[in-house]
Amino acid sequence: MSVCPKAIRGLARARPAASLPIRAAYSGRSIAATSLNASAPSLHTRQQSTTSAKGLPPKDVNKPDRKRFADFEVAGKVFIVTGGARGLGLTLAEGLAEAGGKVYCLDRQPEPDEHYAEAKGRLLPEWGGELHYRQQDITDTQHLDELVTQIAEENGRLDGVIAAAGVQKVKPALDWTPEEVEQMLKVNYTGLFMTATSAARQMMRFKNRGSICFIASMSGQVANKGLLCPVYNSSKAAVVQLARNLAMEWSRVREDGTGGIRVNCISPGHIVTPMVLKNFEEVPGLKEKWESENMMGRLSTPEEFKGAAIYLLSNASSFMTGSNIVVDGGHTAW
């Protein structure tokens, strides 16, 4: 926008420069005139005088009260992570604790492996986070619901869940029995489904607008070259679709204040976990093949998924539901 020079001169005569700031655009360049009223206190002086009047020490305007990346902080919140005894589940639980959360790791093992103690040892008290372990087989849905209820009651809230428990089996499709299929789906789909419903029930009870994250897999979108696991892959596809449907059902806040529960997925690519290391033992050359099949030419580590999990379980993703974050090194992008 252009402004007539005569108009600018007229305005200057009508309103002295010392009274108010004047901003005008001329010939595409910004022209700014600042106030010359020296009697007005600066922003820093005003803040100091206001604060001092309340009997408090003056604030440093260069150090705002608000924390950096506050939307990613989960201090004071309570989470459950299934499959939390080791591998990806434990790593994601540790990430939430690093961000200040109180995290309950659930797994069917009587005791977590040695990496759990190492994870607890890495937590610093000033972070405010905690890790707790509870033995729980997610296929025992009655006791699962009782444990989730107990955790929520003890804390007066439940803010989020990461459903990471899952099993895999390498076997050609023609060799599967109905019983084997049923057992795998009991863990990878039914157990995950019941984890979500138990958690949502408590979130609605305490009116926590929580977040649920399913650990799916890129295997729910593609068939893995060199690895015959048709039931595992199809179970992960079902998990992605389940997230969409639960998001549709639970995300809207209801008149009674319940709901507002977001449901999303993370679909990892190939990760070096105990389960995957077992695959490498079963299939010679598989590691090298997988490394060559993504754009980064390597496999991932569990630590590389912490950021995505904290994002989905925190306020940083407050408008995200029914989505699937694929973190696969570009494997499914070509």
Rank of each mutant, 00 (worst) to 15 (best):
T197Q: 14
R209P: 07
M194P: 00
T273E: 08
Q183S: 14
S234G: 06
G269Q: 06
I266G: 10
T149V: 04
T149C: 13
H143Y: 11
S251R: 10
D145L: 05
A173G: 09
S267G: 09
K236W: 08
M204N: 13
R252P: 09
G257L: 15
E255I: 14
E182S: 13
F280Q: 06
A200H: 02
M184P: 02
T273S: 13
S219Q: 12
A165M: 05
M218D: 07
L227D: 04
H270L: 15
G160V: 02
T195G: 01
L185H: 05
Q241K: 12
K169R: 11
Y232T: 00
G259Y: 10
G260Y: 03
I212G: 03
S198P: 09
P172A: 04
I212L: 13
R252H: 14
F193C: 03
E153F: 12
V170T: 09
P172N: 02
R209K: 13
I162Q: 10
E179K: 11
M194R: 08
V222F: 07
P284V: 04
H270S: 15
R205N: 11
L242K: 00
I162N: 10
S234L: 14
C213I: 13
P284T: 04
G166M: 07
E255F: 11
E179Q: 11
L227H: 09
P178W: 08
A237F: 05
N233T: 12
R157D: 02
F214C: 01
Y189E: 00
S235E: 06
G166L: 09
K171G: 01
K171M: 08
R201P: 03
T273L: 03
N279C: 15
L242S: 03
G269K: 06
V167K: 09
E146F: 06
S251I: 06
T195W: 00
Q202R: 13
N155S: 10
E282S: 14
M194K: 09
H270N: 14
T195S: 13
A196N: 03
E249F: 07
A163S: 12
F193P: 00
E249W: 07
V239P: 02
M204W: 12
M204Q: 11
E153V: 13
I162V: 15
N264W: 01
A199D: 00
N279L: 14
E281R: 14
L246W: 00
A200M: 05
V272W: 12
N224A: 13
L147A: 05
L185D: 02
